[in-house]
Amino acid sequence: MTDGKRSWAGGRLTGLLDLEVPIVQGPFGGGLSSVALASAVSEGGGLGSYGAHLLTPDGIGGLVGELRKATARPFAVNLWVPHPDEAAVPPDRDRMARYTALLRPWFEELGLPMDQLEEPPPAPHFAEQIDALLAAGPPVISFVMGVPEARVLDEARRRGIRTVGTATTVDEALAIEAAGMDAVVASGSDAGGHRGSFLRPVNESLVGTFSLVPQVARAVSIPVIAAGGIADGRGVAAALTLGADGVQIGTGFLATDESGASALHRAALHGPDARTTVLTRAFSGRLARAIPNRFTREALAYEDRLAPYPLQYALTRPLRTAAAARGLADYVNLWSGQAAALTRPLSARAYLGELIADTGSALRRPAPGDV
């Protein structure tokens, strides 16, 4: 281990997950993850991750095989725990008509046929996904949106798979620890993408990262991974100083060359518009943090009438796909955390290297007034 890493990289998280540095790449769903990104982070000594919540069970097995071929180091595969109120129950015809009518103006503006708004196919079933993932046996399984049932965690332990839960409040972190998971991500409201609150409504669970981390670190005994609004070494150093055992970085890695984000999305993350983000239901039916654009602004007036997740996400897919193909950022879900303005175009390995070096520098830097 180099001098730059020696003072801070060792600890409970690196020991638990067999890492060289306590840096986790945030998992992205919806095609934004990539094997190239996850493997680059793992090969660099961190924990690469892949968001698999939209994959079929067969696809999950194949994914784990691809990751094993790409890296001999530990990696994580992430799944969403379904909310009880988001059960895949098809809406009746009248409700479906109301949901599609709200989207009609944007479809017509892009010249998209309305028959693309017919009821989408059902999403993959979580129980089948997790069984396939357990059978594939990745080194680490991470979860967002809730706590999986006991039989899942029991089987993971039996197979030697480490498990990581995601909390947006102290109570959620306590629930994750009580369930027997190995580590918890303390995900502050600064984070990009979907909010993962599961014990209380999202608007009662918007705790900033640097308020959440020390509270979670005091409340639980398992390793704590800080997430949300961390994009450079100063943020890593601050999280460690506040009691975190490591950090999870999403937007910073989403902005790298290897991510599955489109060139349009990466350009937005590196541009001045990324200084502002918004929580919106417009694209998926579930609150998520993104760079605001025309669609999020115009849909704001209808947010309480939009289809629920995952139906809204499926209904807007043709709109998002067509807009991305035409380079129209005003209709694309530009997921972003609140520190995107600190990113710049880099490869994942170069970015990870900068994080490691800058964290060491920040931790060695004397505080103002020190002599």
Score class of each variant (00 low, 15 high):
238 A>C: 15
187 S>M: 13
293 N>V: 03
353 G>W: 01
289 R>L: 06
179 A>I: 11
37 L>D: 02
350 A>C: 03
37 L>H: 02
226 A>F: 07
216 V>G: 08
129 Q>F: 13
338 Q>E: 11
32 L>H: 08
69 K>R: 10
168 T>R: 12
78 N>S: 04
92 D>A: 13
55 L>K: 15
369 G>F: 06
315 L>F: 07
59 G>H: 05
79 L>F: 13
263 A>C: 08
229 G>S: 09
104 R>A: 10
330 D>W: 04
204 E>S: 14
80 W>V: 08
62 G>A: 08
356 I>T: 07
112 L>Q: 13
320 R>I: 01
106 W>M: 13
210 F>E: 13
161 I>A: 09
215 Q>G: 13
140 V>E: 05
14 T>V: 11
114 M>L: 11
48 G>K: 00
281 R>N: 08
36 A>I: 01
72 A>I: 02
368 P>E: 07
107 F>P: 01
264 L>M: 08
294 R>V: 03
370 D>A: 09
45 G>W: 01
147 V>W: 14
138 P>I: 03
348 A>S: 02
51 G>S: 03
140 V>S: 07
253 F>G: 00
368 P>I: 09
256 T>W: 00
313 Y>K: 05
230 I>W: 02
323 A>T: 04
236 V>N: 09
218 R>T: 14
322 A>I: 11
371 V>L: 14
161 I>M: 15
180 G>L: 15
81 V>P: 00
177 E>D: 09
210 F>T: 14
271 G>F: 07
60 I>P: 02
271 G>W: 07
290 A>I: 00
176 I>W: 08
259 S>F: 01
229 G>T: 12
141 I>W: 09
268 A>C: 13
348 A>H: 00
160 G>I: 14
44 G>A: 07
9 A>H: 07
118 E>D: 13
146 G>N: 15
217 A>D: 12
70 A>I: 01
38 A>I: 01
55 L>W: 14
73 R>L: 06
6 R>Y: 13
310 P>V: 12
246 G>P: 03
98 R>E: 12
61 G>D: 05
339 A>W: 03
283 F>I: 03
132 A>E: 04
254 L>T: 13
209 T>F: 04
256 T>F: 01
154 D>T: 11
351 Y>W: 10
248 Q>M: 14
33 S>Q: 04
32 L>W: 06
336 S>E: 06
256 T>L: 00
310 P>T: 12
253 F>M: 01
179 A>F: 12
326 R>V: 02
327 G>L: 06
339 A>M: 05
195 R>E: 04
109 E>L: 04
55 L>E: 15
350 A>I: 01
340 A>S: 11
267 A>T: 11
86 E>H: 15
208 G>M: 14
81 V>M: 05
17 L>H: 04
49 S>R: 01
82 P>T: 02
188 G>N: 10
204 E>R: 12
49 S>E: 00
74 P>N: 05
88 A>G: 03
46 G>K: 00
104 R>F: 11
220 V>Q: 10
134 L>T: 06
283 F>Q: 02
17 L>W: 02
296 T>P: 02
289 R>K: 05
181 M>D: 06
120 P>F: 08
284 S>E: 02
225 I>G: 08
185 V>C: 12
45 G>D: 05
131 D>M: 08
370 D>L: 10
296 T>N: 00
358 D>S: 15
313 Y>R: 07
226 A>Q: 10
332 V>H: 04
165 G>T: 10
221 S>W: 10
